[in-house]
């Protein structure tokens, strides 16, 4: 019990100790940045998995750990699309998840943005042409931001999200 407290006080803050990500492969669309304006100080994300292999989910999970700590930019992950500002969609949209994706989109209060995370969500990636897949995310709901990669690294996701919110990773720039 007290061991935990002692250890955390001794270790100090580990946020920002990760390798710098390269420049974004696909820069943020100015229209998307404009749409994300209400969320500059506070962005709540709902993760929608439409048949991904879970690699993208692992990287999203890493965003909330002490090293990447997306919460310092006011980014949180919610348990319900009703609480969310942004839907992060991963995976090619499978036949069974198509309706769920559309429902989640409908239940997200306006204004909202949709972020396609990973190659599968953007182009169907490996699963292109499969009978179980009904096409990339933007065939079903309008996509504002695309973060390519298979899977994209947490630093890249964080960079795209902070650029969308018009913020810079100060601790990172100073740390490396």
């Amino acid at each position: 019990m007290f061991r935990i407290i002692k250890k955390s006080l001794k270790t100090g803050v580990v946020t920002g100790r990760y390798p710098q990500s390269a420049a974004l492969q696909e820069s943020i669309d100015p229209a998307a940045a404009e749409k994300a304006k209400p969320f500059r100080q506070s962005l709540v994300i709902r993760e929608v998995d439409t048949g991904s292999c879970n690699a993208c989910e692992m990287e999203m999970n890493a965003l909330m750990n002490p090293v990447y700590d997306a919460e310092r930019f006011g980014i949180r992950i919610a348990a319900s699309p009703r609480h969310a500002d942004a839907l992060v969609v991963t995976g090619p949209v499978t036949v069974n998840m198509e309706r769920a994706l559309k429902d989640a989109y409908k239940q997200t209060p306006d204004p909202k943005i949709v972020i396609a995370l990973g190659d599968c969500a953007i182009t169907c990636g490996l699963f292109k042409g499969s009978y179980a897949v009904t096409g990339p995310v933007d065939r079903h709901v309008p996509v504002d931001v695309r973060i390519p990669g298979c899977p994209p690294r947490p630093a890249e996701i964080l960079k795209a999200l902070t650029e969308l919110c018009g913020k810079h990773d100060r601790r990172q720039a100073a740390g490396s």
Partner: peptide, 21 residues
């Protein structure tokens, strides 16, 4: 909590931003 979890954490004024949004 964030500090004890080795994180930098959100600003203490973050809940105001959440409410406004």
């Amino acid at each position: 909590k964030a500090r004890l979890q080795l994180r930098q954490g959100a600003s203490v004024f973050q809940p105001y931003a959440d409410l406004v949004k």
